[in-house]
Amino acid sequence: MKLIYTRPESLKKAAFHYCPGCGHSVAHRLVCEVIDEMELRGRTIGIPPPGCSVFAYNYFDVDMAESAHGRGAAVATGIKRACPGIIVFTYQGDGDLAGIGTAETIHAANRGENITTIFINNAVYGMTGGQMAPTTLSGMKTTTTPYGRDPATEGRPMRMSEMLAPLEGVAYIERVAISSPANIRKAKKAIARAFRMQIDNRGFSMVEILSPCPTNWKMTPVQSWKWVEEEMTRVFPPGVYKDVTEPENAG
């Protein structure tokens, strides 16, 4: 009998605490599969953020260290500068990366820090109960935009991949979506590509993952996956925004 699907070695044997339909567990698994396949487990350090995925260290079976909200890129910079041989990834949400940690993210990217960022964009602050995030869609209702996000007073959603891609220190940026098996396979390829950039010392790499949050979106898991596919991708189009190894995408 041929074994075709099993738990990745880098994923601990623990039950996820995430809500049904949440994108985190899928994203965790994809990162772990990549770490296994690229044989990086022994020399990887992961930086989870405050938020729902703060408990990532209960699931990733690699060395993990907590970071203050938004400071993942700075912490990763410190690790990578002190020990260039270590593979460092940050796992950050939209409030973390695009809100409180915008400065750390932009400057790490601009310096071309040789780190990999897994950016989970679910358009809300999840753990705190569904408040408006920098990536909340215009008109979208959240607990702090109960009448819908009004671009006139709250601005429009921040597109981090588009914003970071032109920086010269950036090696690779791709936006993917957890919305279908085909797209999940694409997401895994993007994650592998991002880690490859780091191994090859190319500079900053990031995969932005559009990720469902059925609980705070007040949807069923199926509705939320459909919403990612149909609504989020209109504002956040998936695709490769930078790839320094492909001349036509070099930005």
Binding site: R71, A74, V75, G78, C83
Partner: peptide, 26 residues
């Protein structure tokens, strides 16, 4: 060794945190 002028005081201390995590005097 590393010298880095950070983008902010906040970033600088968090870089210290990162370097200390992996055992460097920072």
């Amino acid at each position: 060794c590393t010298f880095l002028q950070a983008e902010s005081e906040v970033a600088a201390i968090n870089m210290v945190y990162g370097a200390s995590l992996v055992g460097a005097r920072a």
